[in-house]
Each structure stands twice: as C-alpha cells, then as structure tokens.
Design a protein around this nucleic acid. Structure first.
Length: 648
RNA sequence: GCCUGGGUAGCUUAGCGGUAAAGCGCGUCCUUGGUAAGGACGAGACCCCGGAUUCAAAUUCCGGCCUAGGCUCCA
C-alpha cells in the first residue's frame, strides 16, 4: 500500500466530512478548512480527547480544532503555565525534580521533589515565572529517542516510571521545549509563554506519588493562569469573597458555634447557633410528621455486639472508624449509625402488612472516628446529629416511598434556595449481600428518579455497604459539593436481622428498609447554610431577627414597648441600649447581619411609629408597629429568603 | 493517618533570645445623638502543653495536642 496516496476521512463539528491525506495533523486539517483557522490552532480534540496540534488524525475521527476562543484553550494554557512554573522553579532551584503537572478545573498544579519549598518561596518563583512569560519563549514539541529519554531522566525515577507506563508505547517520545527548559509531555501547549496573560501561584501543599499514601511524599504547588490579567484578578477576587463566607469564620464572628481543642470534630453550639439548630429541627420535625414518621430516640452507648449482625461492626470497627472499647470484659461502642437501633424497635413486636410502612425518625447523634486530617469545621466532624429516618415497607410500597422522600427533599432544598444534585451511588467493594439484591435495590432508586424526571449522575462503587443510595448534594460558596441528604434502599439489614411482617396470607414476609436523611446532619447543614447565606440568614433562621435602636435614653421605654410587643409574637428581638450614637448602632446592626432594625426617637414615639431599616436597603420607612408586625409574621411563616418589608 | 505551614488578650494580627504590642470588641466616664465607626480613660495574656539548651526562651531545639491547606479516606 502506498502511504502517500491513502486518504482518511474525518468528521467536523458541523457534521460535514473532510478527506485529507493520511498523516495529516490536526493543524493540517485546520489549514484545510481555512488559513485563518490554521494559524489560530492551539490543539485539537479527537473523539473527545484533547490532543496536540501535531497529532495525526485517523480515519473516522471526529475532529475539533481548539483555538484561543475555545473553552479547552484555557486548559491548554494552564498546562503551559504548569511548564512555566516548572521552568521558573528550576531556574531558582536547579535540583528540583519534576513529576507530573496537569491542569485542573481551577488552574494547574505541579508535583515536585528534591527541593524544600514553603510559601515564602512562591513569591520568588512567581516572579521568575513572570520573567519567562515576559521573554515570550516559543513552546515547541520535540521528539527524543526512547533510550535518550531514559538516560535524560537517569536521576528522576518518577519520569522514568512515566516512560514505562503512560509513555510505554511511544518511541520516540514527546517532549516540549521552551528556552532552556524541556519536559516529557504529551501536550498540547500554547505556542509561546507570552500567551499567558495572568499567572499566579496559589498554594503549596503535599501529595503522594500516584495519590497512594504508601508512596513518596511530593511537594505540590497550585497555581492558575488566564488569558488576561483582568480575568486572573476576577478569579482572585472571587476566591477572596469565598474565603469571607467561610462558615468557621462567620461561625466565630456571629458566635454560633465552636469546635474547641478538647473535642476535636465535635461542635459546641452557642446560644445563637442553637437557636438556628432548633429552627431547623422544628422545620424537619414538621416534615417528618407530614411524611408519617414516628419520632423515636435511641441511645448513643450500646454493646458493640449490636452492630455485628448488621455489618456495621465490620464496616466501621475494622477501619478504626468506630469508637469502641472494653468495659468489664464486654465491648461497648458509640453508635456510628442509627439503623440498628431502629431495626431493633421494628423487630420488637410483630408487624402486620396492614401496619406498613412503619417509619421511625430520630435526631440521632452518632460518632465516627474520622481521620484527624479530615476534620473541617462543621462540614466534616466526628460527632454529628442526623435527621435520620428509616421506613420499613412492603416491596410493593417501595417505589412510592422513595418518590415521597424525593419530593419532600426538593421542597426543603428550594426553601433554602439550594440547588439539589442527585447522584446514584452503586455497589462497591465493601458491599454485603447478593448481586441480585443490589440490582433490585438500585433499580428501585433509578426508577424513582426517572419517574420524577430528575437528572442524576451515576457514581459506581460509592454506595454504603448495605445498599445503594441516592446522594443529594449541594454546592457551597467555594465550589465544594457536599452530600447532605441521602436516600438508601436496603434489602440486607432486614435479612440479616430477620425482620418480618405477617402478610395477608398469614405467612412471614421480609420488609425492605429505606434509610433517609433530609438535611443529612445538623452540623454539616449548618455549615453549608452559613456559607450559602454568608451569615445573612432568612428571617426565620436568623438568631436575632429584629433590633430596636433607640436614639437616646428618653425613648428607651418606647423601644422596650416595641420589642416586648414583637417578643410576645415569638420574635427574637433585642434593644440596643448601649451608649453609642445612632450611626454606630446601625453600623453594628449591619455587622451582625440583622434582618431588620427599628429606629425610634422622639419623633417616632410621638407619632407611634417605628423607622424600619433592613440589611439590604438604604432607605428607611416609618410605619406603625402593627403593620410591621403583620409583615414580619408573613415573612417568617413563608420562610422568605430575604427581608422584604421595604421592597413592598 | 501522611506532608507542609500555623497556635501571642474574646476576635484579627505584630513582635521572633533581654520587663509582652496594636486595632476591633468589652467596662467606666464625657457626649443626648436622626439612618454604615464621636471622644477620653481603663480592664483584659501561665505568649497551646511538656521537656531541653541558655545568666536569660513567646522567640532556639525535641515531643505532644489542636488547627489550616493538600494527599489519602469518607455515611
């Protein structure tokens, strides 16, 4: 066959096809389409994979050309930025060994070793990187014979490993060069270091080679890059804003909770935080009532034997995640989950098919020995209280029960203005029970999701050990996604604990167990809510809802009258009787994120009004206390997200 | 759990071998105010906990605890 003569046919994004000689590169295809496009080509996408512009297309490939205006361009740019970082690093620290340096959603990182770096070093490296960008060095792909490449990385076992794994099939192997710097790399890259408009190093931390904790520890430097300096500034500004709403910072400032040294991973709720938690509890309790749950309470301290038949003991204890100890020759433990206790209550009497579904709810406090490095404010804790619930249903009731739960979840999340992301998590390595049972349970969840027309992602192997689950995620202010609620179908525990009900046929049957949590845990939900609202809570949740600001001592009595009146209606109100100017009191009220302030002076007292101010509006409005109170009742009852009296 | 930072007044931070600082907050007094910081004075610190070095340690070294960011885990 004559290679020169062969043509290959590729498909373009608009659906048309193009015939090009075999051996044509992505860039070549771009030039075929048009010289302008050819000049602009940065990289290509072949059947969905980002490749260098030098990559050869093949017959039948779907080809996309990546130009500076494409989304993928940013990924390419950041990949090049990683190289610029590496080059800068090696200029300052010639002994540094490179390992891998990919782009990420937010920028890039490069894992390095052979050099001691701390945050202070980043500044100098960043400066060197800016010089490299200034130098506008052309970035070029070069090919090196395999033997030569191996030799070049004589003293770098990491790169050699890459040569033997990722790059095992290629000879020669692909390098990219810019100035004096060269790195083993598949590409793609931008044409020149000068294309990087905005470059910043963000953080320094640690990682393991190949992400395996048994491997060598590497130093990871995070950075980011953008087309322009302005885009970088916007990004950095967004980051600063996100840090401003960190729930740990706001939690301290607003005196909501603390996680003190004496109880790592266990939150202490201060009065205002507990006020919020109580509001959440009452809200969920009402939802549970609507759904037909009966509230129970079960102890945190049990004999460890309780969790052996359910499989929890194996799943938690052996991982060191269960707090358990010997007491008088018997092993006791703190409960890691509530299911075993609820299953016990179910099994404590004979159940008829007429009784099902039997539903138990509990604000159940559980303890898990999470790794110390994992603890983080309220979002990852060792002691948590779940708004837990278990429904024991007949198989024919299963789907309807799941759908009911999903519906109420949608209501609840929208009440907070949170978007729900559904994840179907399937059987993992630690699963107990037969594949058939798992399939049946997974199908039930899938059917329920689809019957409601909900979009969901499938996460294989992420389920709990006893059954598949729907994870209900919310995204927080700094882009982290947290699993909050969950719905899980479990055929295993009923089997293992021999739970039964008496059917119409007078025979014993096996119920199915649904585990579900709506908010997940009060701890995590509080954390997410604080960040979501940035401390500016809706009226119903706000620890202090209204503050009356008297202009001077002459109107203290009137101020207290107004406050007492609202308090009689169950509102949380205070009076600012401190010796501060009005401006000062207003300033303090804003700092405290108060939904409403009522300013009263002699004028208001004489007119029998209050001057209403909220945390959003600059304009105040004088109004009779009754009218304001009536509005407040409505805002609270409907759980509206923002104070809207002045918006009316 | 691992790696690298960090732990100083209620909070945020400065100080980094020689008697412990500032801003905010708190208290008292002056000021009696009109819609986002009036003024003065004052109280408040076993400088995370042990140990070591030193005439002398908040400061240097070792160990521990906690914490931040990652990594690894993860209902």
């Amino acid at each position: 066959m004559s290679r020169q003569e062969t043509t290959v046919t590729v498909e373009l994004p608009d659906g048309s096809t193009l015939d090009v000689p075999s051996g044509t590169t992505v860039e070549g295809v771009a030039y075929e389409i048009g010289p302008g496009l050819g000049d602009d080509t940065v990289a290509g996408i072949l059947d969905g994979d980002l490749v260098a512009k030098e990559a050869e297309v093949y017959d039948g490939a779907a080809v996309e050309i990546v130009t500076p205006s494409a989304d993928e361009y940013l990924e390419v740019l950041r990949h090049s930025a990683a190289h610029v970082f590496a080059q800068a690093l090696q200029r300052l620290h010639p002994d540094a060994k490179l390992t891998i340096g990919p782009w990420t959603d937010e920028g890039f990182y490069y894992d390095v070793t052979g050099v001691d770096l701390d945050e202070d070093d980043l500044e100098a490296i960043e400066e060197a990187a800016h010089e490299i960008i200034e130098e506008d060095l052309p970035i070029e792909q070069t090919k090196l014979d395999r033997d030569e490449a191996v030799e070049r990385y004589d003293d770098n076992p990491f790169k050699r490993e890459i040569l033997e794994t990722e790059a095992a099939g290629s000879d020669p192997v692909s390098f990219y060069e810019q100035g004096e710097f060269s790195d083993l790399c598949q590409g793609p890259h931008v044409d020149s270091t000068g294309e990087i408009g905005g470059f910043a190093l963000l953080e320094i931390s640690a990682s393991y080679w190949r992400g395996d904790e048994d491997n060598e520890t590497l130093t990871r430097v995070y950075g980011t890059a953008f087309r322009t300096e302005e885009e970088l500034e916007e990004f950095l500004e967004r980051r600063r804003k996100a840090a401003e709403r960190d729930h740990r910072k706001i939690g301290r400032e607003m005196d909501l909770f603390s996680v003190p040294d004496h109880s790592p991973g266990c939150a202490h709720y201060h009065p205002d935080g507990m006020t919020m938690r109580r509001e959440l509890e009452e809200y969920i309790r009402a939802k549970n009532d609507e759904l037909g749950y009966d509230e129970v309470w079960t102890p945190e301290l049990n004999k460890a034997g309780l969790w052996k038949p359910t499989g929890h003991y194996d799943a938690f204890k052996e991982e060191g995640e269960m707090f358990a100890w010997d007491q008088d020759d018997t092993e006791y433990g703190l409960k890691p989950m509530n299911c075993a206790n609820h299953a016990y209550i179910y099994g404590d009497e004979t159940r008829s098919y007429r009784d099902l579904p039997v539903r138990f709810s509990e604000f159940g406090t559980v303890y898990r020995n999470e790794q110390s490095g994992e603890l983080s404010g309220l979002l990852r804790v060792r002691g948590l209280t779940q708004d837990d619930g278990h429904a024991f249903v007949r198989p024919d009731q299963l789907e309807a029960e799941i759908v009911n739960t999903l519906t109420v979840i949608e209501d609840i999340y929208s009440q907070f203005g949170l978007e729900v992301l559904y994840k179907l998590e399937t059987e993992g390595d630690n699963a107990v029970g037969s594949d058939e049972i798992w399939e049946q349970a997974t199908d039930a969840l899938r059917t329920a999701l689809e019957s409601q027309g909900l979009d969901y992602d499938v996460e294989d192997g992420e389920a709990a050990f006893y059954g598949p689950k729907i994870g209900l995620d919310a995204r927080d202010a700094i882009g982290r996604e947290w699993t909050i609620g969950t719905v899980q179908v479990d055929f295993n525990i009923p089997e293992r604990l021999d739970l039964t009900y008496v059917g119409e046929d007078n025979e014993e049957h096996r119920p199915v167990m649904i585990h579900r949590a709506l908010l997940g845990s009060f701890e995590r939900f509080m954390g997410v809510a604080v960040e979501h609202f940035a401390g500016r809570f809706p009226l119903w949740l706000a620890p202090e809802q209204v503050r009356v600001l008297p202009l001077n001592e002459d109107v203290f009595d009137y101020a207290h009258e107004i406050a007492d009146d609202l308090e009689a209606d169950g509102f949380r109100v205070s009076v600012a009787t401190g010796d501060d100017t009005l401006q000062r009191k207003i300033r303090a009220g804003h700092d405290d994120n108060l939904p409403y302030m009522l300013i009263v002076g002699p004028d208001e007292r004489d007119a029998g009004t209050v001057s209403v101010r909220d945390r959003n509006e600059d304009e105040a409005r004088d109004v009779g206390p009754d009218e304001f109170r009536a509005h407040l009742r409505g805002e609270r009852a409907e759980k509206r997200l923002e104070p809207d009296f002045l918006a009316e």
